[in-house]
Amino acid sequence: MKILVGYKRVVDYNVRIQVKPDSSGVVTEGVKLSPNPFDEIALEEALRLREKGIASEVVVATIAPADAQAHLRNGLAMGANRAIHVVTDEVVQPLTAARILLKLIEKEQPGLVLLGKQAIDDDANQTGQMLAALWDRPQATFASEIVVDGQVARVTREVDAGLETIEIDLPAVVTTDLRLNEPRFIKLPDIMKAKSKPLETIALADLGVEAAAGLTASHYAAPAKRSKGVMVKDVAELVAALKAKGLV
């Protein structure tokens, strides 16, 4: 079985996000970019399934500008067999991303597609569900455990009420939650090895995907700030303050 992994490049989660003074977006120039944490988890899971003999090949895919090659080399260094780079300078919204990934599915015929539950830049949490709908296949979002048994996967999902387990026929789309696994660290020799692994680039225009009408972002603002309150010296002072506000 082949596994296709969505591997998006995003602003690193440690970066303090600044809104541009003209409100047209957030500052991304000169800011550290990293693989989306949920996508590293997706890749790690795919690698583990390959190490267990369940998967035979792991392919990472990204939809990003031309300068994202180093990002894909990261995924190859982590252990993916191949990489596909769909090149576009446009920011691709989830419905269009799902259409593009569907094209890659048609080309690659994977038995399982692993995506992150959300990209930590747009925080959309949509692409996997949209892809599953367009593909007319099962989805299992927020996965914290995946057990593949032949043509069926049992997936445990982190839902508000607790842990839900569902059974899905393959092929299917699974999106990862944080507790699915801990991604491995990349070792130096692997970075060298990754340089010779196949990396296919496809211009978005050559895929024949119609971009979906998307949302138009008109204005970015910093969130309302909570101001720093007061430090109390002891428990008695804290309780008095809470009593004064009628909170206890």
Binding site: A98, N125, Q129, M130, V159, A212, L215
Partner: peptide, 23 residues
């Protein structure tokens, strides 16, 4: 925008061929 809605609504949006406003 609970795990129920986050799981379901994008699938609905894709079937309708429209984008989704999350959160």
């Amino acid at each position: 925008s609970t795990t129920f809605g986050k799981d379901l609504m994008p699938r609905v949006a894709a079937l309708l061929g429209v984008p989704q406003v999350s959160d």
